[in-house]
Design a protein around this nucleic acid. Sequence first.
RNA 1: GCCGCCGUAGCUCAGGGGUAGAGCGCGCCCUUGGUAAGGGCGAGGCCGAAGGUUCGAUUCCUUCCGGCGGCACCA
Length: 649
Amino acid sequence: MRKSLQNPKIIKLTLPDGSLREFPMAVSGLEIAMAIGPGLANAALAIRFNGELRDLKTEIYEDGEFSVVTLKDEDALELIRHDTAHVLAQAVQELFPDTQVTIGPTIENGFYYDFARENQFSSDDFEVIENRMVEIIDQDLPIERKIWNRDEATNHFLSKGEVYKAEIINDLPEDEEVSVYRQGNWLDLCRGPHLPSTGKLPKAFKMMKLAGAYWRGDSNNEMLQRMYGTAWSDQKQLKAYLHMLEEAEKRDHRRIGRELNLFHLQEEAAGAVFWHPNGWTLYRTVQSYMRIRLERAGYVEVNTPQLVDRTLWEDSGHWEKFRESMFVTEDEEKVLAIKPMNCPCHVQIFSQGIKSYRDLPYRMAEFGSCHRNEPSGALHGLMRVRAFTQDDAHIFCTNEQITSETKIFCDLLMSIYKDFGFEDVIIKYSDRPQVRAGSDEVWERAECALKEAVEAADYDYVLNPGEGAFYGPKLEFVLRDAIGRDWQCGTLQVDFVLPERLDASYIGMNGEKHRPVMLHRAILGSFERFIGILIENFSGRFPLWLAPLQIVVASITDEAASYAEDVVAACRAVSLKAETDVRNEKINFKVREHSVAKVPVIFVVGAREATNRTVSIRRLGGKEQEIVALAQAVDTLAMEAAMPSLLSD
RNA sequence: GCCGCCGUAGCUCAGGGGUAGAGCGCGCCCUUGGUAAGGGCGAGGCCGAAGGUUCGAUUCCUUCCGGCGGCACCA
């Protein structure tokens, strides 16, 4: 490099518009920007060279693709957020000198910074901190990158009492440069890149929340204080983001669950759901639908005990691995555990009566009610509970059947998700975790089998290394909801271990005993959580087939009350879920109330409708009404309310 | 489990060392009104639980329970 500096030569850069421009070697990003135009140079935040984001002042020594990053670029957000995190850290250290800095990365929609400090921060401190941040931005401090000698850097941070930074330097790979960014009197160890000065920040940020976080994400380490913030290119984006958060809060399943009277939770049964009539109706609809789909897919349904002796859990390996999160009780002489999962019990059923290879694949389903003693801090509405019901099943099959069963399962799952309105699904393939049961050889076999299967099934998947179940590799099915959030629901896990441990066998074609393979699989995951997801996805406005109350028949005056009863009877005769509203209230009031309650259809009936045997149909969210003969209205809606996938096949 | 915040009427929340307030909802009365809130009156609270400080605690302190936001965990 020295050598080439002594012999200046020309480098060729391709700009985003495709044009090629020549510059002397070691030209800086800023100089290039100036050469292109002073306006661009002024707006320049950083550069992208051969795909990599770099500081604006980075010198360039070779040909390549070059672009200037300004506020208009997607890339800018990453820079802004990272810089805002630094400004936050500077503000915090200026205001609270007893604070140590640790790390402050960008995250989706913003950034955080973890601080170590004896005293607790409070969110009341945010206002002061934000004000100081604005001051730092207004000072327009130049941000300078320096490469430091490793020992110098360590000593510098240690001398300032920054033991976390020193530890980070110590753990950097030997060949990595130790770079430091200085802004004013404040500096931070950082890889970069950063903006040229604090004044380039658009001041469209907001400190959001304060939370604890373990140093290096390890619960054995001390807890730091994490500050979350959001940052954007301009005020408009910031406002839009804050508005989006408000909207997301409105579809929170806990709020809608209360508003639509679906369920409640209370402290006497933390982590367990009290399903109200509406919620239970929804639950039963989902369950009935699943039952039909499973029956059609060749599953048999079983039901197994809640309380099972510890010996079975010892045999299965759960006692050793998951004892902590099992609810355990005893009678006079036995120790019993409430089942945390269904698989050991399913093996018991499988093993009753010797199975033949002719019986395989044997698809055993259970809407299995399970309990797991989840850590108190993990509980969250319906999404994370201690008492739940899985749409669980175990497919007992031969090695050769893994591929076809995997494909059949993936197809079933995709079809079911589609019926619930989820079309955007990704598959993750997770292989052996650190802590696991079974030999490496068995794992090798299981991993290959599953990988082959998913590839044969012709679905795309992404790798998720080290995240498999303790007994086998797995596929995870992640669906994307209406506002773009991902939820992992379905799973398929190959298990050679449990059949071995619980001695499951079948008689093969050759008359000898063989081990079946077990495929653990779920589609919804748990009913509780899946219903939570449905609530948030639809924001409580369920499609007709899922709506717990489909039609309200609202009378205008008492004159129509008895006709309203007739209409409800006609609906119920075709299994439409209908109620009357013959209260002494104005029709405006009734329409509003049932609209707020997100009832999909309101039939308004007055004297005219009663005389003509018609109904005035009003759809949720619609403004128009349609007058239709009762019989026809009921027919149409009954068709519409049918479970998807069940009419056609 | 860990850190922070919170716990007051069915719900959403205000208040604050001298035993409590609003809106919505609920009940009753008037109103029978044609597609998103008609009017009046009224009931409703061991201020999460247990200890402590105090003449006196819902208010201050401690512990516990639960909720919320994260972290860790998630067979």
